[in-house]
Structures are given as structure tokens and as C-alpha cells.
Design a protein around this nucleic acid. Structure first.
Lengths: 177, 177, 177, 177
DNA sequence: CATGAATGAGCTTTCATTCAT
DNA sequence: CATGAATGAAAGCTCATTCAT
């Protein structure tokens, strides 16, 4: 809190004027950064209205990859990881304000793709994990392990989308000799 | 350290006999759990010898999904995430002993798949992220966010492998002109 | 001060307009509650004018027992006891405005009883302590220790008066020799 | 705690080695001082065995007056007053370990006096308050209000006992003209 | 080898008081 | 007159580390 106060140009006491506790401050931070991102992602899916699910998926991936490249926007997930054991309520808050929102949107996107006949009918819980996981992994490698080899966000999003949509496997010729 | 000593059934003094510092203790923990897992994954790829890359990928996913379902084996990654900021050396240690090992093996697996003509030639850094990300995301949802909806590890591995290999998209009919 | 301001329905700033400091506020509180009680007790003794000291003593006990049953009137003594160490000036203030007043009145009452020949000539400092002590003890048991067995004030005053005036001992038969 | 540690010649950390919290430290203090006094008083009553209730009452008063003259032994009651609002459990602890013990002993003493025919049958709750109150009042005047006029403990105990046993009133001649 | 008492810097939080508006 | 944001010292407590035994 000393450090936070100093960076905010306030005294520690003033911080407690605005937030009841460190936990409350963290919750506000989560809501204003990760919560915002999740809401924007949800809005993106809603705006697309199921018109072109593959394009929406690409757009969403692009958005997420760019967002999580920003250290400021990675602050919220990092917070959960660093302080989640000390403040267990924080993980619950994050789940309610970020994860549930994102999951709902992704489930919606996958379902509309299936409905349109462009996505295969995969188990939604797994589809969600396969969508969000690569973005997470990239963010961790970038911010926590300082991978010098990190691909730029646009390229990353395109590459993830390519594999997600088309698979790693080489398509088999189906009517060969 | 008090808590660790108590659970280990010895005194704090004894703990400092075995480990020079908390950081050293953490490094040992990482080496013995996550390092072990990474080494086993690497051995799995080496043992397969590039014979059936898709099968090896499925096997590796299955191994990882089962491993990270165990709270004890999730302890090391969680440690890095929670303490990585407090002990920056720890993140570097983890990268050297776990991430680099795993990445090398995965890059090898992808390359052998390409060589065999069964995998498309994707950017390896991205292929790696798409492989490991979904497993990570599943572990986080399970252990950090206590998702009650977590799929069982076997089913999870199969589902991830299916999407990874075959993609989300419905294959196009190829019988055109 | 925050709490006091809130309960008083004004801002902290306003509080400091009316009172220079917390100590000053406390002094005002003491003067307006305990000081008032002490003054009323003194007036009671003065009004009686030494006419019927035993009756005055009963009346005074009754007044005190009823007063100290009211949590609002117990607030001032409690304040002294709780904050007397933190604000030593406060104890002196209470002594001057409450204790000295009460003691003077009691000393007066006892003296007039002796003069009238209805009270034995006891050491006044001790007489005072024996008078006020039981009332204090009752208030403490009621407000601090939340004794569920507390006697109602009227009954309490009568009981104390009975013992004070007549003693615990069974009167000896005087018909000897 | 800083102050306590300094006076004990320890660091703050060491204090928390011995006591889980400030409240626990206070409970230990209460048990070792006031609890001890209460237990000794109880033992005194038990030892007397109801043989000479008036003498026991005098002895007990003498013991209490001497005990509460010692600032160290007054520390526990003072603690309750100063910290009771901050740590409400403390008052409950004091009640259980000190007040209930003392009350039980006093009730016993009064009952045995009644049984012997030397004490009048007074309401025990009131008898207790009249016994303990004057001692309390004396201790407060001495330690909190620093009364320069405080009677020495022996004289005080004798004076209280005299009033308690014989009453303030001048005995009436019962067979006069 | 092992103990556990002890340290001291650091943490989150509180609170009487001040002051620009 | 009144507000409430801001301060800063101090409170209770934690914890990695050390050291006499």
C-alpha cells in the first residue's frame, strides 16, 4: 500500500479514504481493467450477432492478444496469481466479473458457429479452454517469463486462429487411389 | 517457512539446514515437481522418435492434463505465478528448468510432424502456445477458480487434441469443378 | 471522531469547529452529563438542609442508582476509565468537576448526620467510599460485565441503604446484666 | 505492544512467540494477577469454613484493600476499563475468571453468616455489591484520580468493615422512657 | 545435526487532526 | 460556518532469517 500510495501521489491514509481495504482496491482494479476487457469482448460477440462466427473468433482473438500484451491490462490476472492465496475472495470476484462474462460470450460464439454450420459441435467447456488458453500462455510467457521470442500480437492472433479453425493436421485427400 | 516446517514435521532451524533460503527451497520444489514433469514429457517425445506425431501429441496432452489435475503438481506453477514478482530469480529458474525443456520437446514434436507430412507447417512459437495454453487454462480454472464444471482429464485431453488436430471448422466439400 | 461526527449528523470539520480537540469534546461531555449528575446530587443534599440525613441518604442513593442505570449517563465515567490513561488531563478534569463535587456533598451529608446524632462518627473518606462504591460496582456489573442478574435500581438503592444504615450484623440483645 | 516488548526486554516479534495476540496476552495477564487474587480470596473463605463470618469478612476486606493498593494488581481491572471496548471478549474473560469466582466466594460467606445467625438475611446480589464496591471505589480514587487523601489500606479495610457490619446509624435505645 | 527463541523490517490498517475550498 | 479529502504517526501483526544451545 505504501508503494501504491507513493505512485498515486497520495498518502497511505488517503488510499483508505477511497478504498475500504487492500482487497477492495484490488477488486476495483480488476473491475476497471479485466472486467472492462471481458465486457468489451462480450460486446464484440453480441455486435457480430452470429453473422460470421469465424471472423468474430479472429476478431476476438486479435482483441485479446493485443489487450494482454499491455502490461497494464495484464495487471489484473497477475494480481489474482500473486495475491489469490492471501485474498481468496479475489479469485471469486475475478471469476464472477471476468471469467463468467468471457465464458458466456465464448459459449455464445461457439454455439452460433455450430448453428450456422461452420463450426463442428465440440464440447463448449473444452472449446472455451482451447480458445482462451493460447492467449493466456502467450501473456504469461511475455510478462512473467519475459520470453524474448514472443510473436507480435497480430501475428499471434492470426496464428492461433489458423490452428484453432483449421487444425494442425494436413487435410487428407479423400478420394485418392 | 513456519508452516512448511510444521507440515514437514521438522523445525524451522532444520529447514535452513537443508535449504539456504526460501528461494532455494522453492527452486528445489520446482526441480522435483515441474522439472520432473517437463523431463517426462521430453522423454515421451524422445521415446516416440517421431514415429506417429499425432499419437504422441495425444499422449502428451493426456499426460499433461492428468499431471496438472493433481494439486501437488500444480503447486510449482502456482508458486511461480504467486511469488514470481517477489523472487524474480525464481521465474528465470522455472524458465530454464521447465519451460525451455517443454518448449524444446514440443518444437521437436511439431517439427517431426511436419517432416512426416502429417502436420501443417505452423510457426513453432505459436504451435507451442496453442498446445500448452488449453492445458494451463484448464488447470487454472480447476485450481485457482475452482470451476465446478471442469471436465475430467481424459476427456479434456481428447477434446483438446481433437480441436488442435482437426480444427474447429467444418471440412469443406471438395467435389467442386 | 469520524464515528462521533457521523452520529451527530455533521462533518468531521464541523466537529473541530465546535471543539478544539477530542479531549475538549470529552470535557464537554463530562461536564454536561456526569457534572450535571454531581451537581444535582449536591443540590439534593443542600435542599435537604440536614433535616433528615438518613432519608436524604436514601434519596441520594435512589437518584444515583437510577442515573447510573442509564447507559447515556454511564458514558462519562466509562470514558474516564477507558481514556484516562491516554488523556491524563481528562481524569483531573473529572475529579474537579464530578468527584470533588460529589465528595463535598457526601461529606456534608455525613457531617450533618453526625451532628444530628443519627449517624455514627465514621472517617468521612471511608464513609464516602462506602456510599459511592456499591453504586459504582452495580453500574460496572451492569454496563461493563453485562450481569444478567442485575437488581432493578429502586430495589438496589433500598438494599444498599439498608445495609449502609443498619449494617450486616444482627443486632445484639441488650438485656444482659 | 512495542512498549510492552521494550519493557520486557524483547522484540515485538518475540512477544508474538509467547502470545497469539494482544488479547491473548491480556488474558494471560488477567489470569495471573486478578485471577490469582480472586482465587486467593475464594481460598480464604473456604479455609475459614464459615467459622467466624464477621472475622472472615474483615480478613477478606483487609486482603482486598492491600491487594488493590498495589499498582501491579490494579493493572488487570484497569486493563478491562481501558481496553474493554476495543476487545469485548476481555470483559467476558474477566467476568468468568475473576468476577464469578469472587462473587461465588462472597455469596458463600454471606450465606454462612446468615446460617450462623450473625448476619441479617440480605439480598446476596446487593450484599456482594456493598462489599466489593467500597474497595473498588478506593482503588479508583487512588490509582485513577490520584487522591492525595487516600487512607492506608489497613485503616481503610477496618473502616469499611465497621460500617458494613454495624451500619452508619447510631443504635437506638430500645427500652428508653 | 537439530531446536526454537528471538529479531527487525515490513505489512495492512486506524485515527486525531489539518486545510483548501 | 461547513465540508471531506488528505495527512502522518502509530497501532497490531507477520515472516524470512539468525543463533545460542
Amino acid at each position: 500500500m505504501d508503494e501504491i500510495a507513493k505512485r498515486a501521489g497520495l498518502s497511505k491514509g488517503a488510499l483508505y479514504h477511497y478504498f475500504d481495504s487492500k482487497e477492495a482496491l484490488f477488486e476495483a482494479l480488476i473491475e476497471r481493467s479485466a472486467g472492462e476487457i471481458a465486457a468489451q469482448g462480450e460486446a464484440m460477440v453480441a455486435a457480430a450477432g452470429g453473422a460470421d462466427p469465424a471472423a468474430t473468433l479472429r476478431q476476438l482473438l486479435n482483441f485479446m492478444c493485443h489487450a494482454l500484451t499491455d502490461p497494464k491490462l495484464f495487471a489484473a490476472p497477475r494480481l489474482i496469481l500473486a495475491e489469490g492465496l492471501r485474498y481468496p475472495r479475489l479469485a471469486k470476484f475475478y471469476r464472477a466479473h471476468v471469467i463468467d462474462v468471457g465464458m458466456r460470450a465464448l459459449k455464445q460464439l461457439l454455439a452460433s458457429g455450430v448453428e450456422k454450420g461452420v463450426f463442428r459441435r465440440v464440447e463448449p467447456r473444452i472449446g472455451i479452454r482451447v480458445f482462451i488458453g493460447p492467449v493466456m500462455a502467450s501473456a504469461f510467457l511475455l510478462h512473467i517469463f519475459e520470453d524474448p521470442d514472443a510473436p507480435p500480437p497480430g501475428e499471434l492472433a492470426d496464428g492461433i486462429a489458423d490452428i484453432l479453425l483449421n487444425g494442425l493436421s494436413v487435410p487428407q485427400a479423400e478420394d485418392a487411389a
